[in-house]
Write a protein that binds this DNA or RNA. Structure first.
Length: 463
RNA sequence: GGUACUCUGGCAGAACGGUUAUGCGUGAGCCUGCAAAGCUUAUACAAGGGGGUUCGACUCCCUCGGGUACCUCCA
């Protein structure tokens, strides 16, 4: 599998000969998660599910930043503690992402639970004379790391001339960044240099190395983290270990609205909860996977709608498959399934192109729906198709709502009754049954010889 | 201002330098008791502008321009 690596700006082959270790920069828990967070996390969720489907072991670590100025400010605003705020939004995070069918990470380390690791990290950097202490905190000296700027392709002197960098007189260089900030206000921890709390970047270095070792496979996050966050992580970590840090840097493009990045300051946030309530998990996942992960994707009703239509086709396909019961046999099914399967895998193997993978998936969907509508889909065909269909569904993290066997029995009875009414040309009564079923999100599909049902996902935006 | 990325039909999005995919949408028709599902067919000046290399360029080079992101917290 090849992935575009931000650092080398080239495609790198992912080593799958042993366990794949992935670190994803998660969220700062001070507010609800939005659809931009969802995209990054869903991309990595699918990457992971794909690898696992190939029986490759994956160690997937995703952090929560639970100590940060934004959290502290929020706590002040709500006259509560930072701890209350972060635990509230961690819960909120899981509510959202469980609904999105995102598999839980191997571990979700928190900054506040790794203070000791962070202190040890800083200690070693002090021993190496790479950081220094001022009246405000402990700072990383960028000039001590010659490769600074290699990830974001920035030149130090150009950055320094930038007017927007805050000036802290105590710092030796405006680019130097805090590993430890002195403070007396909770949350606060002791350290050999003074009471305070960790800076933003240090937690990811400390925790990724703690959980994944000094040289792991993939480090990811949103594109907006390249600078300064990931640049600083590299500086710290490689100074700490004297080794290459992550092997592959994978960055997910922004979700935009009308071409503009979703952000607090612009006030154009769409929370996951909001989108989920309207569109449900499957459509959001399809939407997030509909473009190449590295490129921006524009949030619009139109695109969501397009994915809704596709999702309906996929649902139809599923129900056509499980209801297929005739004797027909299509010789070309086997090769067609094989082709889809190959296209799907090849798309993902080549820089994780989920768009092309979806194209392959929907080609199969269309083929099935066509055969079914023509009464040409045999049960043996279905037997060949279903495993592959479900394999792709699982990798993509799409879930068809299930139904109990009692409900199934009930539906079958309704269908028989409706058939009878239709035969008697009592169409109004027959339609009433169909309408009632629709109310329950059961849709009927009339084929020439038989009527099948499907359980449609209830989607608010579709009604 | 600097750096990176990007610019293909109404929208999304592909293509070894030589077949202008594909999906959605839209129009017409078929199927159906009616719907839904499905089908057929049509539709699109498609390539940001201008140069160049080439027998031939979406694909290579130059140039100009637009957009977005980052340069401050940000998935």
């Amino acid at each position: 599998m090849k992935l575009q690596d931000t650092l080398s700006n080239s495609e790198q082959t992912l080593d799958i000969s042993k366990k794949v270790r992935i670190y994803l920069c998660g969220v700062t828990v001070y507010d609800e998660s939005h659809i931009g967070h969802a995209r990054t996390i869903i991309v990595f969720d699918v990457l992971r599910k794909y690898l696992e489907s190939k029986e490759i072991m994956v160690e997937f670590i995703q952090n929560f930043t639970d100590v940060d100025d934004k959290i502290i400010n929020r706590a002040k605003l709500e006259s509560t503690t930072a701890e209350q705020i972060s635990s509230k939004y961690i819960q909120n995070y899981f509510t959202d992402f469980d609904r999105l069918n995102v598999k839980r990470a191997t571990n979700y380390p928190k900054a506040t639970e790794h203070i000791e690791d962070i202190r040890n990290f800083i200690k070693r950097l002090i021993e190496k004379d790479i950081v220094y202490v001022t009246k405000n905190g402990v700072y990383f000296s960028v000039s001590k790391f010659p490769d600074y700027g290699k990830l974001s392709k920035k030149k130090i002197d150009e950055l320094q001339s930038g007017a927007r960098i805050e000036v802290d007189e105590a710092k030796k260089d405006p680019l130097d960044f805090a590993l430890w900030k002195f403070s007396d206000v909770e949350p606060v921890w002791d350290s050999p240099w003074g009471k305070g709390r960790p800076g933003w970047h240090i937690e990811c270095s400390a925790m990724s190395i703690r959980y994944l070792g000094e040289n792991f496979d993939i480090h990811g996050g949103g594109r907006d983290l390249i600078f300064p966050h990931h640049e600083n992580e590299i500086a710290q970590s490689e100074s700490f270990t004297s080794k290459q840090f992550a092997k592959i840097w994978m960055h997910v493009g922004m979700v935009t609205i009308n071409g503009e990045k979703m952000s607090k300051s612009l006030g154009n946030i769409r929370t996951i909860k909001h989108v989920l309530d309207n569109w449900g998990p499957n459509i959001i996942r399809l939407f997030c996977l509909s473009g190449h992960y590295s490129k921006p994707i524009d949030y619009s009703e139109e695109l969501l709608k397009e994915n809704l239509i596709k999702w309906r086709q996929a649902e139809t396909c599923y129900y056509e498959l499980i209801h297929a019961n005739n004797e027909n046999h299509n010789n070309e099914i086997k090769s067609s399934v094989k082709e889809t399967s190959d296209d799907f895998d090849n798309a993902l193997k080549s820089d994780f192109n989920t768009h092309l993978a979806l194209l392959a998936f929907f080609k199969l969907v269309k083929e099935v729906n066509y055969l079914a509508a023509e009464e040409k889909l045999g049960s043996n065909d279905a037997k060949i198709i279903i495993p592959e269909f479900e394999r792709m569904l699982n990798i993509l993290g799409l879930v068809i709502p299930k139904i109990t066997s009692e409900q199934k029995q009930q539906i079958d009875n309704w269908i028989i009754e409706r058939e009878q009414l239709r035969k008697e040309k009592k169409f109004q009564d027959a339609d009433k049954i169909r309408d009632n079923l629709n109310e329950m999100n059961i849709e009927l599909i009339d084929h020439k010889g038989k009527t099948i049902w499907m359980r449609k996902e209830r989607i608010k935006a579709d009604s």
